[in-house]
Amino acid sequence: MTVLKRNNVTVHGAQGPFMVYAHGFGCDHTMWKRVAQQFSTTHRVVLFDYVGSGRSDIRDFDDERYGTLNGYVQDLLDVCDALELTSGVSFVGHSVSCSVGLLASVKRPGLFDRLILLGPSPSFLNHRPEYEGGFEREDLEGLLALMDQNYMGWANYLAPVVAGSDGAGTVSAELSDSFCSTDPVTARVFAQTTFFADNRADLQYVTTPSLILQHRNDALAPLSVGTYMHERLVGSELEILDVAGHCAHMTHPDLVVAAIRRYLASDDKQR
């Protein structure tokens, strides 16, 4: 089993520097399609799924490894290693993957030239008074219960039990596309890891320049989170996208593409 297969890695475009896209919780690499395709002529665009998400190989899922963000950081680094990337990479991450990218940049200095962070949050939990993540613990526990209930109703979860090993493949395949996040067990672990992580203390070790793209009305990350990160990330730029929701790359891909282009251009000029 190679990492490329395990993480469902695809590379688009034949020339230019590498640009690695990492999806957020609840989704998979397909969310980046509309943004990534805009860069496939100038960059070699890398898309992948974390183990437990999308079309990754679920057999490699280990609740210990993926019980902390380090498991996802290692997935990202494994993907880069498999492609033999050592430097000059642009990282583009959404939501929890922003934290994954930041941690990977600290663990592997020199790999990334820049980090583009869409809708980042170092902690979804509130740590009042100094930090407003947006949620209390019981809110997040409610999410886990919601997930349990939703997946309960889905055939793909019950299929192995009901239909036995033979019929499962067909049912799963049919229904897996009905929801982005397909596996209830891995999704639960990913949810827990994502929403209870607190990476505020790690921000000070990041030296790679970054662009923080924030949604103006984001149910998941209040505006103050963007400011908080901007103040603590050395060499960071902050841009507010005039967008509601948490998925500008899907709802307003053109805005995101334009912001990334601007950042790349200004960055090139400085070099």
Binding site: T30, D177, S178, S181, A219, C247
Partner: peptide, 22 residues
């Protein structure tokens, strides 16, 4: 409620945006 907001953003909207239906 907050939990449903997160669920909407992390599960429902991405699926809707991708598939057009849920």
């Amino acid at each position: 409620p907050p939990a449903s907001r997160i669920f909407l953003q992390t599960h429902v909207f991405p699926t809707l945006l991708r598939n057009g239906t849920i």
